[in-house]
């Protein structure tokens, strides 16, 4: 796509975060007034284990330009090992998305509650990466 079109394109991103780590990190980014782009909407889950890969599929099919997931670092799950199971599911769905070149639109992160800065920076880099990818081909499609 042309440079001009890129400039106009504002990515829509949906993120799923664990309440105990990344959601708290997002709060901390707020407390520290770390500005980041306004493109992401967060859906709060209690644990990354609640992320059903179907959510990712649905988001992408509904036209989300980017989807991200972020949970506690492996080994630090509030629910002891929820994120280990989550990681397997995510790896599976990523592999499926990869087949259709969609894996670049789905990012996963581990961001702990104290990493407010990392959260803000992640939102920045994520938005830029998705902007670079351009709009989701599903956007506006009648499916």
């Amino acid at each position: 796509m042309g440079e001009e079109a890129k400039e106009e394109f504002e990515p829509k991103i949906v993120g799923f975060t664990c309440n105990w780590c990344t959601y708290a990190a997002a709060d901390l980014a707020g407390t520290s007034r770390k500005k980041y782009p306004p493109n992401s909407r967060i859906i709060r889950l209690m644990c990354s284990a609640r992320l059903d890969p179907m959510f990712v599929l649905k988001a992408l099919l509904n036209g989300a330009d980017g989807v991200f997931f972020s949970g506690c670092h492996p080994g630090e799950c509030h629910y002891i090992k929820g994120n280990f199971y989550a990681r397997r599911r995510i790896a599976a769905i990523r592999t499926i998305l990869k087949q259709f070149g969609l894996d670049d639109r789905f990012k996963s992160y581990w961001i702990s509650a104290s990493e407010g800065e990392k959260f803000a920076n992640t939102m920045k880099s994520l938005t830029e990466e998705v902007r670079e990818l351009g709009p989701n081909p599903m956007r506006g499609k009648i499916i």
């Binding site: 492996p74 080994g75 090992k81 280990f84 199971y85 990681r87 397997r88 599911r89 995510i90 790896a91 599976a92 990523r94 592999t95 894996d103 990012k107 996963s108």
Partner: peptide, 16 residues
């Protein structure tokens, strides 16, 4: 079944 098991360190290459 793969979804019922895990290893503490794995799959980093599948996550980005």
């Amino acid at each position: 079944l793969p979804f019922t098991a895990y290893e503490e360190e794995e799959l980093e290459e599948c996550l980005r």
